[in-house]
Design a protein around this nucleic acid. Structure first.
Lengths: 214, 214
DNA sequence: AGGATATGACTGACCAGTCAGTATAGTCAG
DNA sequence: CTGACTATACTGACTGGTCAGTCATATCCT
């Protein structure tokens, strides 16, 4: 792509505060996310990540132990906080369970389909067999906590007579799976002419609630 | 440089040659499937594939042009025939649409969850951005044909008054997505203690039909 | 001065793909 | 039947390129 002329015409835009050290990890991580999502873990080259972050490859090693550590940080810094937020939303929610499901289907559904959150999911799923410790961390922090909390909400719906009795955990997973698959789809094979993600989310939402309602 | 045209076919009518040559491509392909599914395309080494197939690496190149060709052959030889079969089942089916959905949910659901078909899906999804031609081939041969035909069946259900009116293609995708995600899940993060794949398939099946029924 | 931040240049391992050569079996002239 | 020839199947050893990770050196900021 761009070969660097050795010296000459060095940085004219002299950044006064070179104490950007605080931002460096974030810059590098963002570049890593983009490239991991585009190419997969193996095929993403550290040198390209460095280029995109505007640093040299060696600088990455000032802030991260290894390529794998970068992958781990991605989950720790980006995915887990999002789950935390969802869970606290869920805990403070008081209306009918179906209202929350509608809200969540639309927000999460669109986030997964139209941002690289879907690509991150695809990435984790693709690499999980090769990085068991990362997969373990992800599994316990994301799906297990997420499903558990969503199951609580659905169980409340069942107890309140809003939903018919069923296994709440399975129902929670069943609520999530089309949204997750939609996100993976849109970040791999899609977008295509066959599936309209917005329509699918909408239909899933109504069909799921309809099927679950007494 | 390469004048290894393999064709030149004028079969002697009676050659009782014990050539195992016929089996070689299948042996190699099976080994490739296993390793691609375990490790992903990049991380799977051709030498390991060769070892598992009981041949040398150079032998692979007698039957396949490149590593990527091996990936392509995997889809052509394994995935597409399965879709063909499903479609012909669907076309010859005559009972209520919901019966076929139940049948398909269970057979396909279990195949994806408990065989490496789910891992193959995971693989295709993971690598599709890096191999656009393979992704195009897969998309047109598998999801597009599959969804189109399933949509026909669902449309018939709508026309017959079995289901309530809705967009049949979206409904078809919505029927498939939990089964696909379940297959990917079981071949990446799962199996785990949170999700029971069999229960999920069963519940999806009933909930989906219930939601769609008038 | 001296610690913190950064990098260009390098290395060592790895791996897809190649090639010259071996092995085995079929063909056929004598 | 035999030995020379040929076609097919296969492989060990190599190459050229790639890339994660290292390190000696340089620059900046108290």
């Amino acid at each position: 792509m761009d070969l660097k002329i050795v010296a000459s015409e060095d940085k004219p835009p002299k950044t006064s505060t070179l104490k950007r050290n605080n931002e460096r990890p974030r810059q590098i991580l963002n570049a890593a996310i983009e490239l991991f999502c585009e190419l997969g873990f193996e095929a993403a080259r550290l040198e390209d990540i460095a280029d995109r972050a505007g640093v040299s490859k060696a600088t990455i090693y000032l802030y991260f132990e290894s390529k794998e550590d970068l992958f781990f940080a991605l989950i720790r810094e980006n995915v887990v906080p999002m789950v935390d937020e969802t869970i606290s939303q869920m805990e403070s929610f008081e209306g009918p369970a179906s209202d929350f499901l509608r809200f969540k289907a639309h927000t999460l559904g669109h986030t997964l389909a139209y941002t690289n959150q879907g690509a991150i999911l695809k990435l984790v799923v693709a690499e999980s067999r090769r990085f068991p410790e990362i997969a373990d961390y992800f599994r316990t922090e994301v799906p297990e906590r997420g499903i558990e909390n969503l199951a609580k909400l659905i169980q409340r719906g069942i107890d309140d007579g809003e939903f018919r009795p069923c296994d709440a955990k399975t129902a929670a997973a069943l609520f999530m799976f089309p949204l997750l698959m939609n996100g993976i789809w849109m970040n791999s094979l899609g977008p295509d002419t066959v599936i309209d993600p917005g329509l699918l989310i909408e239909m899933h939402c109504e069909n799921f609630i309809r099927g679950l309602t007494l």
